[in-house]
């Protein structure tokens, strides 16, 4: 029952996290920042706006992105197969990319393009993460991973690699070239407006939930450790976001693939020796 409740509330919790993050970033810059519930105000306002569409495919694909992402979060909460969750997440990203390519807009195309490259950077690491958990627990099932003791120590290098991909997924500096706010006007999301943009906006909140739920897996059955991890990583990601500049997509690929794959590889080889 609690799972159903969590699944239904997932976008709301994501919105709260997003609000908290905006507040926190503002405090780090020594300003007051928007209210905590700002994302929800945005949401109501977007529903109230006149809706525009370019073509039906574009809009429907955007909605499919949101729904499949919600599905991903639901499956993590229900404790389904981790590998399946990762691939379903890939599917949801693909929907977004197809949406971006389905309109004749330069920025949208560039954004989708960069999104594809970002997938190239983080997807192998996610798969390795899944395999790391499999070697440790003998199963891909998230419910099994949650029942076992914390994997943080044994998967520490993979944990570091995972930290690198959080900014990519959450569109944070230095790895936010795929959205690149003013540079390519938000990339994929540029042609969405009104209530249809709302779906993408909420999908962004769900992305927070997805990433932080994956992060919590490192804590296994230790809820206290999980909360601690969440708090520390949340702070760290925002600190890095405030302190770094955006880097180019090719650098992103080199850095994330180079360092991430090496770390993951060392960890997997180490695991099989232990």
């Amino acid at each position: 029952m609690i799972e159903i409740l969590l699944i239904v509330c997932a976008p709301l919790i994501g919105g709260l996290i997003y609000g908290l993050e905006r507040k926190m970033r503002a405090r780090m810059q020594n300003r007051q920042g928007p209210p905590l519930l700002q994302p929800f105000y945005d949401m109501w306002k977007l529903i109230d706006k006149q809706a525009f569409i370019i073509n039906p495919y574009h809009t429907i694909l955007g909605m499919m992105h949101f729904i499949s992402l919600w599905m991903v979060v639901a499956f993590i909460i229900l404790g389904e197969n981790l590998l399946y969750v990762i691939f379903l997440h890939l599917l949801s990203s693909i929907f977004l990319i197809l949406a971006g390519f389905s309109v004749k807009s330069i920025y949208s195309h560039i954004g989708s393009n960069r999104e594809l490259l970002a997938i190239l950077a983080y997807e192998p690491i996610l798969i390795m993460l899944g395999v790391g958990f499999f070697i440790l627990n003998g199963s891909f099932d998230i419910s099994v991973i949650r029942e076992n003791s914390p994997a943080l120590a044994s998967l520490f290098l993979l944990f570091l690699a995972f930290l690198m991909l959080i900014p990519i997924k959450l569109k944070k500096s230095p790895f936010d070239a795929s959205e690149a706010h003013q540079e390519i006007v938000g990339g994929v999301e540029i042609e969405f407006s009104g209530v249809f943009f709302e779906f993408l906006y909420m999908a962004k909140w769900l992305e927070y939930i997805f990433i932080y739920l994956l992060l919590m897996l490192f804590a296994g059955d230790n809820i206290l450790l999980g909360t601690g991890l969440f708090a520390i990583v949340f702070f760290l990601v925002n600190l890095v976001d405030n302190a770094t500049a955006r880097i180019k997509m090719s650098h992103l690929l080199k850095i994330v693939l180079g360092i991430g794959l090496t770390l993951g590889m060392c960890n997997l080889i180490g695991l099989s020796y232990v």
Binding site: A51, F52, I53, I54, V103, I106, Y107
Partner: peptide, 9 residues
Amino acid sequence: KAHRVKEYN
């Protein structure tokens, strides 16, 4: 209800 609109260039 949605209006058709041009892409942003």
